[in-house]
Nucleic acid binder design. Structure first.
Lengths: 105, 105
DNA sequence: TACATTAGTTCAATAATAATGAATTATTGA
DNA sequence: TCAATAATTCATTATTATTGAACTAATGTA
């Protein structure tokens, strides 16, 4: 049985957030997740098809362990959702700003 | 003669900025530089004394090549200054927000 | 029930990046 | 000229990322 590691809200660190977002693929995953209301499976949110699924899994783990997303197994797939409320309480404006700025590049 | 590499404004990338700031020491260096009006030498801006100077030099290089700071050799030391105006034009609000949020941790 | 499919994880190996001691460069001052 | 200072570069080691292969768990189907 797979057990996902999610940090408690108080253990979410700014450096972890920045490090997790400091990667083009992870930024794109976050954009997918934020654009889509509700949950997405890993492969749905994946930015490009020609990527090893082990790599994808790794990136989701980074996002999860930084506290950016919550993952739950539902049936055969994972449902991923951004921890929007908690992140916004901890770091007001950060997520929206970064995602907005990344659009403009 | 040491030649510093500074990206042109249009080559400064959000991911590079985030990656450069995704490190506690570099965040603290940036805080030093932003708190202090004007330039600072590398060792002035260093967050702790017990750090290898090669490591410090490495961190300044990361900040420089991400486009966050400008370095110029002046006499025996380097004068480092944040590229505030350019960063703020490219990514309005980002730098101040990240530095502000990092204070609160 | 058994077998295949799907979605994703974990493991192990390799590739890339970070940290640091030692040696070096360049400037200043005695 | 020689020593001191500030920082870089180089070479080595340590850490982190990427990926193929093997595995797990849920679902669908004959």
């Amino acid at each position: 049985m797979v057990q996902f590691v999610h940090p408690a809200k108080e253990d979410i660190k700014l450096e972890g957030i920045l490090g997790a977002l400091a990667d083009p693929m992870r930024l794109r995953i976050m954009k997918s997740l934020m654009g889509n209301e509700g949950c997405m499976s890993c492969s749905e949110a994946a930015p490009c098809p020609n990527i090893a699924k082990s790599t994808l899994s790794h990136h989701f783990r980074i996002l999860r362990e930084a506290g950016l997303i919550h993952t739950a197994k539902k049936g055969v797939e994972n449902r991923n959702i951004v921890r929007t409320e908690e992140i916004n309480q901890l770091f007001p404006g950060l997520l929206d700003l970064i995602l907005k700025l990344s659009e403009e590049q």
